[in-house]
């Protein structure tokens, strides 16, 4: 299973956690990998904790990222970092909301896509698949602002890279 990449995306209901994990799973799928994406969803009410697991590689078995096996943990909401931290492997990459300053985005609703952009900088999926996945999962009028958010996140992660203290 060493060839399998494990990513967990977490946040609060209404923040776009599931849209982000859909995009990630779709990008990996378009890149030709075996993919499994899993979460428990169903309630309409907003505000509760939400997290979603994505695994991709040559062959994925369980759809759930095993405990402390996430290579990348993306968290959209500061209060959700600690409760999800145990999911990250000791040498894994944590991408938190502070990576993108509160004023940085044209629309803060694109934070999910911006942080996905940051994750894309550390995942081996070609950029064209990310963009195709983004387009496939968002209404057309949202493409531009989200492409921009994605690029901002990707650039921010690249700028930070090299000195990631876990």
């Amino acid at each position: 299973m060493d060839t399998v990449k494990n990513i967990v995306i977490a946040g609060l209901g209404g923040q776009g956690v599931l849209t982000a994990s859909d995009m990630l799973a779709e990008a990996a799928f378009r890149a030709g990998f075996d993919v499994k994406k899993s979460e428990l969803h169903g309630m309409s009410q907003r505000g509760g904790s939400v997290s979603s697991d994505v695994r991709y590689g040559a062959c994925v078995l369980s759809p759930m990222v095993p405990e402390a096996q996430a290579d990348v943990l993306v968290v959209l909401e500061a209060t959700q970092v600690e409760i999800n931290r145990p999911r990250l492997r000791p040498d894994g990459v944590l991408i938190g909301p502070e990576l993108i300053g509160p004023e940085a985005l044209a629309n803060r609703k694109s934070l999910n896509v911006a942080l996905l952009g940051a994750a894309s900088a550390v995942l081996d999926i070609p950029e064209e698949h990310w963009l195709a996945a983004l387009h496939a999962n968002l209404a057309e009028r949202l493409h531009k602002v989200n492409e921009q958010a994605f690029a901002q996140g990707r650039a921010a992660a690249r700028a930070r890279a090299g000195g990631q203290p876990h």
Binding site: L12, G13, M43, Q45, R46, G47, G48, S49, S51, E67, T79, Q80, E82, I83, N84, P86
Partner: peptide
């Protein structure tokens, strides 16, 4: 078994 950290429970939407 280790108990996973408790997340935030859902609540009725504002304005509901």
């Amino acid at each position: 078994e280790p108990v996973p950290p408790k997340g935030k429970p859902p609540e009725l939407c504002q304005g509901c």
